[in-house]
Design a protein around this nucleic acid. Structure first.
Lengths: 335, 335
DNA sequence: GTGAAAGCGCTAACAC
DNA sequence: GTGTTAGCGCTTTCAC
């Protein structure tokens, strides 16, 4: 039943495979009568077209792959939702794969591109260096989203990380804070680095001194947030506010503050980045810089599909900046 | 560069496509010399095999699809991690797709099975009725994980939901609670229904009365948890403990309790189900029934791959029960 | 409006 | 150890 082929259908209804194919793709004119016979045969045989054959022939799969460093982050999934929403009505399927921060797995997943198993890939983060990405982009359809790569001339959709960091810190300053700490990943992450640049620019703009002891660069891992806070709060002069480059770090920070017998939003202000769902669920709820995930997903896949369609023609490899916004909740306060 | 075919490689190195194919799959004996020539040509042309051709010919894709109702749940992703871990060294790729609780999208995703685009599907929840699943399982390789379907004779891996519910409520009773509420989805969800059955059996076993007003059946949506708590706490005699069929509902409940000016773990005990990462991050941390996600993922895909290999032979359509465990944290207390 | 036939890129008999 | 060749299931010219 399942392995009926188009040929079986043709035999069953006494028409040619060409005609069957035509009704399958309602491509050319087929008489009503023939169409019905085909449909009946399909029904009877429980036929379902084999896309391996179709895709091989058409040299396209209508599938977009989204890769991400980790799937624990609901943030990524929001972007995927945006991608899906755009693809759905346009006949594209989207599939996801997370590489668990293993560049080995990432490479393996990219094989789906080289394989021709997917028509394009959207990378929500990558371990590939710029040159490699540029090389890939020459031949394949790829795009970066939410985490750009310095020097990569590849279709990219991101927020202005530097400005986002600036705005976050500025909002803390406006609330009266003057000793503001920074918790981020190390500088090899473009987004973390830029958000730090924004942090520094804001301090400078408002003539606040930069204290090295208040700058904690580590990783994006949850644990880093708490560890950094522990260090910060044990300083002779602890900060009154801390800007974290991700909500996960911010949440970890809030947690640790609580463990230390203090209260985020009262004893220390905590600000994150991303606006993941959990920010609202926290007690206190977490202030943050919102990234418009759904819009980013829609935009990046829209441009990617355009590139795919324009195969052969000039590819769009621009970097699109989408607007962020500051969301103040309970974890920040006026001092 | 990218569209070099095996034929191009053959021409380039002056050997036949068969030989090239052989070194690609290191299937038969190929002389060292020839192998080198092939590799050189591949390198030179930047050749990458087209899997559409290969898969069509071999009638397999070595790809497993995991579908889930929503991707916001980190719980699902933990299972996927287990699946991935098992697949990785065995040459299978795993891809995910979430259907956002839309059965229409789910159907569309299942097309990848009919299409022959994937070799098997693992469903972490489904809107398909038992008969449909049984029918599908005859022809295709599918498996259910973490959410079974009553009456489906399909390979399934789940915890004992009834016993899990029982154990959760029993642990609350052991802590001295006697008015214990239930917050769950409606009975069309097999897991929610069974956990309620366990809840009822525990009450009965310990000779506690069942109060209908303490049983809140709604949905799995976050909001439902809070709404139920609001209702429960406005009763003349509110419960001292509440068992929720999911951590998401429990977290929502904890949140609402806080909003009402009360404290979970002090004024009311809250217990969830799943042990998602967030349970530990909450303040208070949330007690729960742990499902061994990684193990579930590994087991289900192990059995599924066995079914795929045994194509033609007898398929394993058993239901495997994996052990759960009770984790008590701050959201529960002795009364 | 319909059919015959070529061919997408690949693997696997089968020959030698 | 290597080459020839027949398909895998499908779409799409090109005839008629």
């Amino acid at each position: 039943m399942s392995d009926a082929t188009i040929k079986d259908v043709a035999n069953e209804c006494g028409l040619s495979v060409a005609t069957v194919s035509r009704v399958l793709n309602n491509s050319a004119n087929v008489s009503e009568r023939s169409a019905k016979r085909v449909h009946d045969a399909i029904e009877k045989l429980g036929y379902s077209p084999n896309f391996l054959g179709r895709n091989l022939r058409k040299r396209e799969t209508n599938v977009i792959l989204v890769t991400m460093p980790t799937s624990e982050h609901s943030f990524y999934m929001k972007i995927v939702a945006g991608i899906q929403q755009y693809c759905q009505p346009r006949g594209y399927d989207v599939i996801c794969a997370s590489y668990n921060n293993s560049s080995e797995v990432e490479v393996r997943q990219m094989n789906m591109l080289f394989n021709r198993t997917v028509d394009g890939v959207i990378l929500l983060g990558t371990s590939y260096p710029a040159e490699k990405l540029n090389k890939l982009a020459e031949t394949y359809n790829i795009a970066l989203c939410c985490e750009g790569v310095e020097g990569a001339d590849v279709l990219t959709v991101v927020v202005d990380d530097e400005q986002g960091g600036y705005d976050a810190v500025k909002s803390l300053i406006k609330l009266g804070h003057r000793r503001i700490a920074f918790i981020g990943a190390n500088d090899s992450s473009a987004s973390s680095f830029k958000r730090k640049e924004g942090y520094l620019r804001a301090l400078k703009d408002f003539q606040l001194p930069v204290y090295d002891e208040l700058i904690c660069c580590g990783t994006f891992e949850y644990e880093h947030g708490g560890e950094a806070v522990e260090k910060l709060m044990s300083l002779k002069e602890p900060p009154t506010a801390v800007f974290c480059v991700s909500d996960l770090l911010a949440i970890s920070a809030v947690h640790k503050v609580h463990e230390l017998g203090l209260e985020a939003g009262k004893d220390i202000a905590v600000m994150g980045f991303d606006n993941i769902t959990m920010c609202e669920m926290m007690m206190p709820s977490v202030s943050t810089v919102e990234q418009p995930c759904k819009e980013m997903g829609e935009l990046v896949v829209k441009k990617l599909l355009a590139n795919i369609s324009a195969s052969g023609g000039e590819k769009d490899n621009k970097c699109y900046i989408v607007p962020h916004s500051i969301i103040l909740r309970e974890s920040t306060f006026r001092i």
